[in-house]
């Protein structure tokens, strides 16, 4: 028992001594007081960025830790978002129930996809996820009667009409998801997951059922993606293929995670907010906007392959 207590003390000491924690707390505090100064428009941009942050963190758990590239994060997001939107629009179900149903449908859809494909070795998992997005996208267009097709569908209920309240929802959601996902990544399970991602054969020889652990990582990723997708719908008040499911949205999520730093979870959130922010800032450039963001990302991948946060952490480790 005493040993146990000492260990807890030691953990607490290490946690409180970690600079990353204090930086994160500081960033959240600053984010929390931003509504005092920022315009409604800027808050709106940040709110969208926060939901994207959750998308990117959920993606990083799968890529950075389990080592599986999910080319279709929007498949999971779209399932969650559209399930929630349809239930709200057609059946008038309350927002919490819709969000929960969105999570369940993202989880089930994700598992149907992952169970057969994670057993295959090599790049098949990534390819399957890519195809899944196209299937979902076309499915939504074909069944336009239920889904609203290419025009999309509006939801009668929204989280809030106030930009500030919406901002709080987004920030709180990001922080809660960030704490859970980051905690998971640093836990014993996260360690096994990392081992499975880096060298599946050695992880198996250490006695870990790699498929089981990767499947779990995928499920967690699906739950958070689905939830964030549903929340985003009730923030924007609409669900449309172009804003939630399109391959380009998936690419943006991947870019955000890589930009912020893979295998850091928190970096993915930073990257997402940054990407959305820069995208808005450069909007006057129109066509050049996407080009500028892509060029910036390419530069980061080439010169800082660990991403922004990964680079900062590594530099500190080297000291």
């Amino acid at each position: 028992m005493t040993v146990n207590l000492d260990l807890i003390k030691e953990r607490m000491r290490r946690l409180l001594g970690s600079r990353l924690l204090w930086v994160a707390v500081l960033v959240v505090c600053i984010a929390a007081v931003l509504p005092l100064w920022l315009s409604v428009y800027a808050l709106g941009v940040l709110t969208a960025g926060y939901y994207f942050g959750v998308f990117a963190m959920a993606w990083d758990l799968l890529f950075g830790f389990a080592g599986e590239v999910n080319f279709g994060p929007t498949f999971l997001i779209g399932l969650g978002a559209y399930t929630a939107a349809i239930l709200n629009n057609k059946y008038g179900l309350a927002i919490p129930w819709c969000a929960m149903a969105g999570v369940v449908s993202a989880l089930i859809g994700g598992l149907l996809l992952a169970i057969p494909s994670l057993r295959l070795r090599g790049p098949y998992f990534g390819l399957v996820t890519l195809v899944a997005v196209l299937l979902l996208q076309n499915g939504i267009v074909i069944f336009a009667g239920i889904t609203g097709g290419e025009i999309g569908m509006t939801v009668p209920d929204v989280l809030s009409l106030s930009a500030v309240t919406n901002y709080w929802y987004g920030l709180a959601f990001l922080v809660v998801c960030g704490v859970i996902l980051f905690g998971l990544s640093r836990s014993a399970v996260g360690l096994i997951l990392q081992a499975s991602g880096q060298d599946p054969i050695e992880a198996q020889a250490l006695g870990f059922n790699v498929t089981k652990h990767k499947l779990m990582a995928f499920s967690i990723s699906a739950v958070f993606s689905g939830m964030a997708g549903a929340m985003l719908v009730f923030y924007m008040g609409t669900a449309s293929v172009g804003t939630l499911i399109d391959i380009s949205i998936g690419v943006q999520i991947i870019i955000a995670a890589v930009l912020g730093g893979r295998r850091t979870i928190l970096g993915a959130a930073v990257g997402a907010v940054l990407l959305i922010g820069v995208g808005e800032f450069l909007r006057p450039l129109v066509q050049l906007n996407t080009f500028a963001v892509s060029a910036l990302t390419l530069a980061v991948i080439l010169f800082f392959p660990d991403g922004l946060l990964g680079y900062a952490l590594r530099k500190r480790e080297a000291k």
């Binding site: 836990s187 014993a188 399970v189 096994i192 880096q198 050695e202 250490l206 652990h213």
Partner: peptide, 26 residues
């Protein structure tokens, strides 16, 4: 091919972990 982000000690601890999805702390 040890885990690159973890210390030597953490790499050894890995070998002690049970094959469990639910045990978050060693």
């Amino acid at each position: 091919r040890p885990l690159r982000r973890q210390t030597v000690l953490e790499n050894i601890k890995l070998a002690f972990l049970p094959d469990s999805l639910w045990q978050l702390v060693a």
